[in-house]
Amino acid sequence: MTFSEDEIERYARHLVLADVGGPGQQRLKAARVLIVGMGGVGGPAALYLAAAGVGTLGLVDDDTVSLSNLQRQIQFDTGDVDRSKVGVSARRLTALNPHVEVRTYAERLSRETAQARVVGWDLVIDGTDDFETRMAVNAACVASRVPLVSGALGAWSGQVAVFEGRPCYRCLVPDIPPDAETCARVGVVGALAGLIGSLAALEAIKRLTGAGDPLTGRLWIHDALSGQSRTVRIAADPACPVCG
């Protein structure tokens, strides 16, 4: 796989970077990444993956842009309100890097549809904000043997994990919490979304290029109020209905 003169200049800082270089950049160019949820986590992740030169990006979201999104979803601006999130995002990513192919799916994944959508992708990033979709995406990734990068936001906390086989997301969250908090109900500090989305993109880049030690089977948790972070290992649940 060769690079044009534009690509060589565009990716110059990757091409001289230890653990990426030409071979790693070629792997990025050949990669296909599906991003489920084009909100606070998926938006920054998509921007950084497009900038990094991931060859094909798939964007999944059935929602439209609202004014309240703009406090944290930096891929949109005021003129995008009421427009399709995946449509606006596709134009933004193509403007950022015309070498990236962007495919859009204006739909909400469910237990019945996730499997067909996930098949054929090299990696999936889940930035959704509801547990039903997260569990559907996780089950589809386990069944299709597709690595999953999961990013989530709380009011002042965020977390990122990488799942590949066992343990899976269902080992971490066996059941949907009955009192699950939402951004609309408890709020979320906007800049935190950029942090978690960027880390999700970074973990995807590490996994795709073979650089470093991805967070596979581990959960990184950040408390923005205290500025403290910790990483915990996720135990595989032998009774897990998805990967057990």
Rank of each mutant, 00 (worst) to 15 (best):
R170K: 14
L172R: 09
L172N: 08
L172S: 09
V173N: 11
V173D: 03
P174V: 13
P174W: 13
P174I: 14
D175V: 09
I176A: 13
I176R: 15
I176D: 08
I176C: 12
I176S: 12
P177V: 15
P178N: 12
P178R: 13
D179P: 00
A180C: 05
A180W: 03
E181R: 14
E181T: 15
E181P: 14
E181N: 09
E181A: 14
T182R: 07
T182M: 01
T182Q: 05
T182E: 00
C183D: 10
C183L: 10
C183S: 12
A184Y: 06
A184T: 10
R185N: 00
R185S: 01
R185C: 00
R185P: 03
G187N: 03
V188E: 05
V188G: 04
V189S: 07
V189I: 14
V189Y: 06
V189A: 11
V189R: 04
G190S: 04
G190K: 10
G190L: 01
G190T: 09
A191Y: 10
L192W: 04
L192P: 01
A193W: 02
A193Y: 06
G194I: 04
G194Y: 00
L195S: 13
L195R: 08
L195C: 08
L195G: 15
I196S: 09
I196D: 03
G197L: 02
G197P: 04
G197I: 03
G197Q: 04
S198R: 09
S198F: 07
S198M: 01
L199W: 02
L199G: 12
A200W: 00
A200Q: 05
A200G: 04
A201C: 13
A201H: 09
L202W: 11
L202N: 13
A204E: 02
